[in-house]
Design a protein around this nucleic acid. Sequence first.
DNA 1: AGAATTGTGGGGAAAAGTGGGGAAAGGGGG
DNA 2: CCCCCTTTCCCCACTTTTCCCCACAATTCT
Lengths: 141, 141
Amino acid sequence: MFFGEYPYKVDEKGRVPLPPKFRRQMREGVILAKGMGEKCIAVYPVAEWKRLSDSLAAKAVTPANLRKLNRAIFGSAFSASFDGQGRITLPFPLREYAGIGDTAIVVGANNCVELWCEGEWKAEKTSAEEQASQIIETFGA
Amino acid sequence: MFFGEYPYKVDEKGRVPLPPKFRRQMREGVILAKGMGEKCIAVYPVAEWKRLSDSLAAKAVTPANLRKLNRAIFGSAFSASFDGQGRITLPFPLREYAGIGDTAIVVGANNCVELWCEGEWKAEKTSAEEQASQIIETFGA
DNA sequence: AGAATTGTGGGGAAAAGTGGGGAAAGGGGG
DNA sequence: CCCCCTTTCCCCACTTTTCCCCACAATTCT
């Protein structure tokens, strides 16, 4: 379970710390991938990543479909691990994709962690909150 | 079950005590989240939080929906626990959101506890009482 | 009235955030 | 094929923040 929202510096070498509480759930290493649909970087613990990619692969109906899926999923994924200071280095393609400069917002999103640039996150946050309150008002909590 | 309304000091380090009666129902730790819709901090016992977040997640219809929902729910939530004096430390984003300065009104709200700044609470209180009496008169008690 | 619990404040030790340096590895050019 | 340059990785150092413990005053309970 990943909670909360934390701003962190990205240094010149592209390194970002993750909150200690997150690290403890990621001792086995992590997979970095493009956020699906959203302009952010998704960080999965390896176990969770395997679960996800397997369940996706199982839903591909044709071999051609599966190949495409595999390319899209694995092609943009990188494995990473923590240095002695609890930081991971962001691969440049992902960093560029998410538009992350010298600050990253680290967001806990239940089963994964997301990295956002400040601007995109502010927008996404308000839209997510709107949608959540709609669901709550409609169905109740 | 949480009852009552108590004013407490918030010290320079952002720590707030909760009433002993509340603590005893929160030994396993708590989750702090934005009050849904209202400008306050909601404090849930972990078990109650899990119940709530699960039931909300179940209402998301599409994967994209679910991701957004997770961001709204988990992104603004923080776990916390009590220090030796029965206090919890308020994460700065939440404190700012609720506009809590050096005093917090701790309010028992049945399944959770809410933290308000004095001003907002006074307003919410009168409006809540008015609405409640209307509801009672309309539907009976 | 005495004892225990609670509200409030602060200090010190440990951990976390940030930045930089040097060695090893990889690639390109001579 | 060798050398040099670039890049990457790992380690070290410093500053700030956080966490945990102690202490006192006030209140409550017995």
